[in-house]
């Protein structure tokens, strides 16, 4: 398999990475180089082999239902490039308007 221009555009869109038109041909070549490399996996007989998600074999640890967190409003908002922190509307993260 190999990626064509539409595939690369689609993947870039899904990943929200803007690819200028002039960058697409080089990206196709690079990605296909990697895909060709990983294509070797098709040689392996994996019939009946369970996919391995992780190396850890223990069950999921669980925590108790306790609120154990101070109000971190200031810390959480302090790194944002744009946040409405002064207004009487409250303290929010701010992004360009989304039309639903």
């Amino acid at each position: 398999m190999s990626l064509n221009q539409d595939d690369v555009k689609k993947v870039a869109r899904l990943a929200r990475i803007k690819l200028p038109a002039e960058a697409i041909p080089a990206m196709i070549t690079e990605l296909n180089g990697i895909i060709k490399f990983v294509e070797q996996l098709q040689e392996v007989d994996t019939k009946g082999v369970e996919p391995m998600v992780r190396v850890v074999t223990m069950p999921l640890p669980m925590r108790d239902d306790r609120v154990d967190y101070p109000n971190l409003q200031r810390e959480v908002l302090s790194n944002a490039q744009e946040a409405d922190i002064a207004g009487n509307r409250g303290r929010y993260f701010v992004v360009p308007k989304v039309v639903e």
């Binding site: 990605l31 990983v38 996996l41 098709q42 082999v49 996919p51």
Partner: peptide, 20 residues
């Protein structure tokens, strides 16, 4: 790409099997 519809099994799942 390897997680996207139509390629997951051929790449991602396959790689997880080989990892095993």
């Amino acid at each position: 790409y390897v997680l996207s519809a139509g390629y997951y099994d051929a790449y991602y799942r396959k790689a997880q099997q080989v990892r095993n």
